Simulated assay, not measured.
Amino acid sequence: MELLVRLFVGQPPAILTVAVVFLAGYLALRFRWPGVARHPRALLFGAMGWGIFAGWEWLVLLRTPEANIRVDLLVIGPVLLLLSSWSLLRAFR
Protein backbone atom coordinates (compact mmCIF):
# COMPACT_ATOMS: atom_id res chain seq x y z
CA MET A 1 0.00 0.00 0.00
CA GLU A 2 2.84 2.37 0.82
CA LEU A 3 4.27 1.80 -2.65
CA LEU A 4 1.00 2.89 -4.27
CA VAL A 5 0.89 6.00 -2.13
CA ARG A 6 4.46 6.93 -3.09
CA LEU A 7 3.73 6.26 -6.77
CA PHE A 8 0.46 8.13 -7.14
CA VAL A 9 -0.17 10.67 -4.37
CA GLY A 10 1.16 14.01 -5.53
CA GLN A 11 2.34 12.58 -8.85
CA PRO A 12 -0.05 13.67 -11.64
CA PRO A 13 2.27 12.43 -14.44
CA ALA A 14 2.31 8.92 -12.97
CA ILE A 15 -1.47 8.94 -12.64
CA LEU A 16 -1.83 10.20 -16.19
CA THR A 17 0.38 7.32 -17.34
CA VAL A 18 -2.15 4.84 -15.95
CA ALA A 19 -4.94 6.67 -17.80
CA VAL A 20 -2.93 6.49 -21.03
CA VAL A 21 -2.38 2.74 -20.52
CA PHE A 22 -6.14 2.21 -20.18
CA LEU A 23 -6.71 4.33 -23.30
CA ALA A 24 -4.03 2.43 -25.23
CA GLY A 25 -5.64 -0.84 -24.16
CA TYR A 26 -8.98 0.38 -25.46
CA LEU A 27 -7.51 1.47 -28.79
CA ALA A 28 -5.59 -1.79 -29.20
CA LEU A 29 -8.63 -3.93 -28.46
CA ARG A 30 -10.92 -1.80 -30.57
CA PHE A 31 -8.82 -1.47 -33.71
CA ARG A 32 -5.92 -3.92 -33.59
CA TRP A 33 -7.57 -7.00 -32.06
CA PRO A 34 -11.32 -6.48 -32.40
CA GLY A 35 -12.32 -10.05 -31.55
CA VAL A 36 -10.39 -10.42 -28.29
CA ALA A 37 -12.64 -8.43 -25.98
CA ARG A 38 -16.39 -8.26 -25.99
CA HIS A 39 -16.66 -4.80 -24.44
CA PRO A 40 -13.45 -2.82 -24.97
CA ARG A 41 -15.36 0.42 -24.38
CA ALA A 42 -15.34 -0.36 -20.65
CA LEU A 43 -11.63 0.52 -20.62
CA LEU A 44 -12.59 4.08 -21.51
CA PHE A 45 -14.28 4.40 -18.11
CA GLY A 46 -11.05 3.38 -16.41
CA ALA A 47 -9.13 5.88 -18.53
CA MET A 48 -11.58 8.65 -17.67
CA GLY A 49 -11.46 7.85 -13.95
CA TRP A 50 -7.67 7.92 -13.84
CA GLY A 51 -7.61 11.06 -16.00
CA ILE A 52 -9.98 12.86 -13.64
CA PHE A 53 -7.84 11.76 -10.70
CA ALA A 54 -4.73 13.14 -12.43
CA GLY A 55 -6.50 16.47 -12.89
CA TRP A 56 -7.59 16.44 -9.26
CA GLU A 57 -4.05 15.76 -8.03
CA TRP A 58 -2.72 18.55 -10.21
CA LEU A 59 -5.34 20.92 -8.78
CA VAL A 60 -4.51 19.89 -5.20
CA LEU A 61 -0.79 20.43 -5.81
CA LEU A 62 -1.49 23.80 -7.39
CA ARG A 63 -3.87 25.10 -4.73
CA THR A 64 -2.58 23.49 -1.51
CA PRO A 65 0.96 22.19 -1.97
CA GLU A 66 1.45 21.98 1.80
CA ALA A 67 -1.49 19.58 2.34
CA ASN A 68 -0.23 16.55 4.21
CA ILE A 69 -3.51 15.05 5.39
CA ARG A 70 -5.59 13.94 2.41
CA VAL A 71 -9.04 12.77 3.49
CA ASP A 72 -10.21 12.86 -0.14
CA LEU A 73 -8.05 9.82 -0.86
CA LEU A 74 -10.24 7.73 1.45
CA VAL A 75 -12.99 8.07 -1.16
CA ILE A 76 -10.93 8.34 -4.34
CA GLY A 77 -8.80 5.24 -3.70
CA PRO A 78 -11.63 2.69 -3.36
CA VAL A 79 -13.58 4.29 -6.21
CA LEU A 80 -10.57 4.03 -8.54
CA LEU A 81 -9.93 0.45 -7.44
CA LEU A 82 -13.52 -0.57 -8.13
CA LEU A 83 -13.67 1.33 -11.42
CA SER A 84 -10.39 -0.13 -12.67
CA SER A 85 -11.35 -3.66 -11.64
CA TRP A 86 -14.79 -3.37 -13.19
CA SER A 87 -13.47 -1.99 -16.47
CA LEU A 88 -10.84 -4.72 -16.80
CA LEU A 89 -13.28 -7.49 -15.94
CA ARG A 90 -15.95 -6.09 -18.23
CA ALA A 91 -13.55 -5.71 -21.14
CA PHE A 92 -12.09 -9.21 -20.96
CA ARG A 93 -15.07 -11.21 -19.77
Results as ranks from 00 to 15, higher is better:
Leu44Met: 14
Ile69Tyr: 13
Arg70Cys: 14
Val60Ala: 01
Arg70Asp: 09
Gly49Lys: 05
Thr17Trp: 14
Arg63Cys: 14
Pro34Val: 08
Trp50Asn: 10
Arg41Leu: 15
Leu80Gly: 10
Leu3Gln: 11
Thr64Ile: 08
Trp56Gly: 07
Ala91Leu: 04
Pro34Thr: 07
Pro78Gly: 04
Tyr26Leu: 04
Leu29Glu: 03
Phe22His: 02
Thr64Pro: 13
Gly49Tyr: 09
Ala19Asn: 02
Leu74Arg: 05
Arg32Asn: 12
Arg38Cys: 08
Glu66Ser: 15
Leu29Tyr: 07
Gly35Met: 07
Met48Asp: 12
Leu82Met: 13
Leu7Val: 04
Phe8Asp: 00
Arg30Gln: 12
Leu23Glu: 00
Arg70Phe: 14
Glu57Ile: 15
Val79Asn: 03
Gln11Gly: 03
Leu61Glu: 15
Gly77Val: 11
Leu61Pro: 11
Phe53Asp: 09
Pro12Lys: 02
Leu89Val: 15
Gly49Val: 11
Val75Gly: 06
Leu62Glu: 14
Val71Thr: 06
Gly55Asn: 05
Gly51Pro: 00
Met48Gly: 08
Leu27Asp: 02
Gly46Glu: 00
Ala47Cys: 12
Glu2Gln: 01
Pro34Gly: 06
Gly55Phe: 11
Phe22Leu: 05
Trp86Glu: 06
Gly35Val: 09
Arg32Leu: 13
Gly46Gln: 01
Met48Val: 15
Arg70Pro: 10
Leu23Phe: 06
Ala91Gln: 02
Leu44Ile: 07
Gly51Val: 10
Val71Cys: 11
Phe8His: 03
Gly55Val: 12
Leu80Gln: 08
Val18Pro: 01
Phe45Asp: 09
Arg70Val: 14
Trp33Ser: 12
Leu62Cys: 12
Ala24Pro: 00
Ala24Tyr: 00
Leu43Arg: 04
Pro40Met: 06
Leu4Met: 14
Trp58Glu: 10
Phe53Ile: 12
Val9Glu: 07
Gly35Ser: 12
Pro13Lys: 00
Arg90Ala: 02
Arg70Leu: 15
Leu29Ile: 01
Leu88Pro: 00
Thr17Val: 15
Leu62Pro: 13
Ser84Trp: 04
Val60His: 05
Thr17Asp: 09
Leu29Asp: 02
Phe31Tyr: 09
Val79Gly: 05
Leu29Cys: 05
Ala47Asn: 03
Leu29Arg: 05
Leu81Thr: 07
Leu23Arg: 03
Arg38Gly: 02
Ile69Asn: 13
Arg41Asn: 08
Leu74Ile: 11
Ala24His: 02
Leu7Tyr: 12
Leu3Gly: 07
Gly25Phe: 04
Arg70Trp: 14
Ala14Cys: 04
Gly77Met: 10
Val79His: 07
Trp86Ile: 03
Trp33Leu: 10
Val9Cys: 15
Gly55Thr: 04
Trp33Thr: 06
Val20Tyr: 04
Leu62Gly: 07
Leu44Trp: 02
Ile52Pro: 01
